[in-house]
């Protein structure tokens, strides 16, 4: 659509400076290499293709998470959200998961979502850890506010990271936030955050060449794991 930049200047939220997340590569349980890297607004249409099938998966709150991510990505693409960022995980170029988040203030991060498409490889755990790594280590924030929409998320984030409960309403639905502080992050980092930098050139080139998105039926199969009779 045609963009009226004068009007945009009024509508777009002001953003604070935001550091770039340096890509890393993680060796997974099956020895596959997952590249974790920050993507840009230009990648949003591709990401939406991966998120779309989750809108209709009424299991594990995938539809709730999917619909929210979908809107968050669109809002990011059209500059209707402040200081959002998005990291993707790719194996051989194929997108296996993503996380998004935003800077609420320069000091406080507001964790948005984690979507794992390939399950059983701890892709979600690795990507969530990368998101926290970005908030604390690269964006230099003091804390991240987090809520979980699913039991899997609750267990993974609140318990594994030993997060502090707070009464601060989270942007996602107003539920009381849990807080990851710098101290908690560094206390858990050794067992939760891994990855090698820099990413070897050929792996990075493959990842950047194209974010390959599986077809919708395949994504549904991977997530829901429906098996035949």
């Amino acid at each position: 659509m045609a963009v009226d930049m004068e009007l945009e200047a009024v509508l777009r939220p002001p953003e604070c400076p935001q550091a770039h997340y340096p890509a890393k590569v993680i060796t997974l349980a099956n020895s596959k290499r997952m590249v974790v890297r920050e993507v840009t607004r230009d990648d949003v249409p591709t990401l939406l293709k991966a998120v779309h099938p989750t809108l209709f998966i009424d299991k594990d709150y995938y539809n709730v998470v999917g619909a929210r991510i979908y809107s968050e990505l669109l809002a990011w693409q059209y500059y209707r959200v402040q200081n959002e960022f998005c990291l993707v995980g790719q194996i051989d170029g194929i997108m296996v998961g993503m996380v998004n988040s935003r800077m609420y203030t320069a000091e406080t991060g507001m964790s948005l979502h984690t979507l794992a498409i390939d399950r059983g490889l701890r892709v979600g755990a690795h990507l969530f850890a990368a998101k926290m790594e970005h908030h604390i280590e690269y964006l230099g924030q003091d804390e991240v506010l987090i809520v979980a929409e699913s039991p899997i998320g609750f267990r993974r984030w609140m318990i594994e990271y030993g997060l502090e409960p707070t009464t601060i309403p989270h942007e996602l639905g107003g539920a009381p936030s849990y807080r990851l502080t710098r101290e908690l992050y560094f206390a858990s980092k050794a067992r939760l955050v891994v990855g090698d930098r820099p990413v070897p050139e050929e792996l990075m080139a493959l990842a950047e060449k194209e974010i390959v998105v599986a077809d919708e039926a395949m994504i549904r199969e991977k997530i829901v794991g429906l098996r035949g009779r």
Partner: peptide
């Protein structure tokens, strides 16, 4: 899903895997 010794034991990333 096949798993490897590298991915679940040898790699430093296996602490998360």
């Amino acid at each position: 899903m096949a798993i490897t010794k590298e991915g679940i034991l040898e790699s430093p990333h296996s602490v998360v895997n």
